[in-house]
Every structure is written in C-alpha cells, then in structure tokens.
Nucleic acid binder design. Structure first.
Ligand code: MN
Ligand code: MN
Ligand code: ZN
Ligand code: ZN
Lengths: 149, 149
DNA sequence: CTTATCATTGAATATGAATGTCAATTTCAG
DNA sequence: CTGAAATTGACATTCATATTCAATGATAAG
C-alpha cells in the first residue's frame, strides 16, 4: 500500500497539514490515513463507501471522522464534491484535476468524465454579461452509455 | 385568481387529464388545483413551499398529495425537477420552456436563468464522440450575483 | 518531561427531506 | 346508482446528513 506508482502524496499531505495549522486545527493519524485512502481509491466515492474501505485497514475509525475529514479536504482544495442525483454526495480528487463534466448512465450508473474548456468559456462570457461572478459550476449529462442503449 | 394575463392554462390541464386517462389514473380536484397554483407561482418551488401556498386557499390539501402530484406533473412534462444544492428538490414549469442553465448566488440564493443553445451543441458533440446517448442535462453555475459581490 | 488547554474522536442522537403505509374517502366505468 | 379501484392525508419510516458530548489525544509553554 505504498509502492503503487501513483506519485507520492507528499504534496497533498503538505497541503492538508498547512491548512490545519493555518486554521488552528490539529494533525491527527485519522486525518492522514483518510487522506491516503481517499487518494489511493477510485473516484466519486461517498462518505459511506470511503468509510467502508478505511474500516478494512483500521476498524476503529468512525464514520463521523471520515465525514468531517471529507469536509476539510474539500475546504482545502484536495477534494471536490460532486452529485449524480442518487441522493448522496460524492467526492473526487481535486488537486491537479480541473473541473470537468460527467456523463452519467441512468441505467447502470456508469460515469464518464469529459473536458469542458469550451463550455467554460461560454459560461464566463454569459456570466460576465449579466454581472454574475462565477466561482464554480456543475455540468451533468444524463443518458445511456454505450452498453445500455 | 383567473384574469391574470398569463395565458389560459387550458393546455396544461388537457395534458394532465390526457396523461391521467392514459395511465388509468383519476382526475381529482386536488390535482387540478395543485397544477393551477404551480403554474401561477414563482419558479423553482419546492414541494414544501408549494404546499404552504396551496394551504392558504385550501388548508385541507395534504403534503403527500402535493408531493405526489409534482411527481405526476414531472412525468407528463409539465414540470421539471431542478436542484440547486440546498438539499431539496425544486420544480419549475417545463411546458414551452426549454432547458436552460442556472446562475445561483451562493450568498443570497438568488437564481438567474440563461440559455444554453451553444453549450447543448457541445454536449451533443462530446456525447456522440464517446457513444453516449444524452437524454437530459443539468448545468448550474455557483458564484456571486451583482449585489453580493 | 510534565502539565494545561483545547481540538478531536466516535458512538449516539437529532434533523429533515423523501418515501411508504393504510383506513377512510372519492372517482368513474358499467 | 353501484362497486372496484384509485386517491387522499395523517402518520410512520427511511436514509443521508449534521450535531452532541464524554473520553481521548495533540500541542505549546514551562
Ligand atoms: Mn469526476
Ligand atoms: Mn429554471
Ligand atoms: Zn449504462
Ligand atoms: Zn446574491
């Protein structure tokens, strides 16, 4: 669970630690472990799912801690919350990963990501026209994936 | 509550009645009244809010009925569900009103709509490229409205 | 190292929207 | 009309999210 060739996570840990210090919060084993598992895991994970995964390596970590840590990770830019209309929040890695849209299969739940550079340009244009300052956006496309059509 | 110059709602009622008949469901006063109030009301209303409004003119209509009727209205294309990340579903008029994006102020909650014709073209393009068949989409932009900046 | 302070943890509990249940009532085809 | 079947509305349940709180842990000062 270390030599997995996904680039070291030092940078992410430094960001987390810096954020905690700056906010007067404390550095704990739980927070570090949750960050590790979050980063080494599949994308679009819910708090529940992440907690289930973490329990396998440390059954003593509570759901609340996972839940609260995901919030912290989101605050410090390491995670991003996404929502696929299934009634629960999901989180994906945010560092070095720009905004993107999601194609969500309404039949099997499969999701695919796509770049939205041109769309983002349109959004900026439109927003500026009406005096709105855009800070974030969500674009979800619902439909049928190749297999489900 | 009738001569309000918003075009008659006959067409909507015909659509609802046709849908009910076709599905073997029954035409009730409640459903008609809920449709009326839904149409003569502000956009982006939650089930709760709609129920509160309806209670003023008929206190005997229950929340469950409003909730279930909104589902029916969505099924027959008279309403569309939208979600602004505040944890509850909202509904807007859908007949004669194409898809559009929303600019949502994260400070005051104000929402503004905008056309997404060009963006829709991009979505279709991208989807086709990967073999995905798009059936619907949501585009929400979060930021600060003119007043809140 | 020791201590004092204050944040964190995790189990339990609370919250709130969405959905399900069911007896009484209403619709509507025949 | 009449009866089968859908509807209604009060209430209960579910489920994700959020909060509470006593015990524990982290950190800075001495
Ligand atoms: Mn993604
Ligand atoms: Mn709208
Ligand atoms: Zn699929
Ligand atoms: Zn505002």
């Amino acid at each position: 669970m270390k030599a997995e060739g996904k680039g070291d996570m030092k940078r992410e840990h430094e960001i987390l630690i810096g954020f905690l210090k700056q906010k007067g919060l404390k550095q704990t084993d739980q927070r570090e472990k949750i960050l590790d598992i979050f980063l080494s895991n599949v994308k679009h994970v819910s708090a529940d799912e992440l907690h289930a995964t973490i329990r396998k390596s440390d059954p003593r970590i509570g759901f609340s801690t996972v839940y609260r840590t995901l919030k912290i990770l989101t605050e410090c830019g390491l995670a991003r919350e996404v929502n696929f209309g299934d009634g629960r929040a999901r989180f994906e890695r945010a560092l070095d990963k720009g905004q993107h849209g999601h194609l969500i299969c309404t039949n099997c739940g499969k999701t695919e990501e796509f770049a939205i550079a041109t769309i983002e340009k349109s959004i900026k244009q439109i927003s500026t026209n009406v005096g709105f300052r855009p800070l974030g956006h969500r674009l979800e496309v619902y439909g049928l994936c190749k297999r489900c059509q």
